[in-house]
Simulated assay, not measured.
Amino acid sequence: MYSITSFPQPYLTYLLKDEQSGAEAEIVPERGGILTRWRMDGPPGRAEHDGEEILYMDEERFLDPSLTVRGGIPILFPICGNLPENTYSHAGQRYTLKQHGFARNLPWQVVDQDTEGQASLTLMLESNAETLSVYPFEFTLLFSYQLRDRQLLFKQHITNRSEKPMPFSVGFHPYFHVEEAVKPKLQLGIPAHELYDHLSKTSAPFAGSLDWTAPEIDVAFKSLSAQEAVVTDPVAGRRLILTYDEIFSTLVFWTVQGKPFFCLEPWTGPRNALITGEKLIQLPPGDSLETQFALRVEALG
């Protein structure tokens, strides 16, 4: 049995619940359509992990509407990452577009909810005067969150309502909770043999490990050999499995020393794609794009 309820504080929040498994997810439409929390019971025999938060959330930033949210699963559109000096040009005009775009900062509208076979909530964001001032394209975004047992499915339906091709990237920025002492014990199953370091702007071989002593890790995996990535946490006794459509061509791993999170982010294109054109989606006028990715948690056997 599945249910969807809502409560008003601090923002109007929708709670998706699988009554049988006890899994829960919370979504806040007005704060960028963000999924803020994902909870579930721990593996059998690990009662200390029952009701544990899978995601990290910086509550202070979340409560301040003037700040971007650091936590949950922010939506990235129409760019992933940042542009040089936060600017780009289109049709001879210069625009300012801040890091990760505007979708994570704007209010979304709930347009559908369903509890048949899953708990599903669909949100919509449409272009408006504010978006057109920084991104001159008319669009409609329909994003669905679907909770079922120990899995979250994220479906995207993107429509270009302009009379010209619409260039964009779309992605997600999940913050997964992990204590600092546990980070070096994480086992990374990322389907790539090379990484690009955003900080040093250099490429290096990847053999499954990262430099956990670094103050910050910010790397991109662009040449993916499969549509699944796994992070195993032996301390919590679970593995996190990320699956994604082929259009998600880039995975970004980010963490900061001293903060209890790591991010594993599926992007359709790398940083600066709006300028370089690398893996940039060009959606024809009137066309729509449908894509999805999923997160699943499994107990270690």
Rank of each mutant, 00 (worst) to 15 (best):
Y2L: 02
Y11A: 07
L15T: 13
K17I: 02
S21W: 01
V28M: 10
P29T: 10
P29M: 08
E30V: 09
L35W: 00
W38N: 00
R39A: 05
R39D: 06
R46F: 00
E52G: 15
E52T: 09
E52Q: 07
M57V: 11
T68R: 10
V69K: 02
I75L: 01
P78L: 03
C80K: 11
L83D: 09
N86P: 02
Q93S: 04
T96E: 05
T96M: 08
L97A: 15
G101P: 12
R104F: 03
N105C: 13
D112Y: 10
G117T: 08
G117C: 08
S120R: 12
L121A: 03
E126L: 04
A129L: 14
S133V: 15
P136T: 08
T140R: 15
F143V: 02
R150P: 00
R150I: 00
S162T: 15
E163G: 09
S169R: 08
Y175F: 15
Y175V: 03
V178E: 05
A181Q: 13
G189Y: 10
L195S: 06
D197E: 11
A207Y: 06
S209F: 07
Q227V: 04
E228R: 11
E228Y: 03
V230I: 15
T232S: 07
D233G: 02
P234V: 14
A236I: 01
I241D: 09
L242R: 01
Y244I: 01
Y244N: 03
E246L: 13
E246P: 08
S249M: 07
T255I: 03
G258M: 12
E265H: 03
P270H: 02
N272A: 13
Q282V: 14
P285V: 09
T291Y: 01
T291V: 03
Q292R: 05
A294W: 00
L300P: 01
G301K: 00
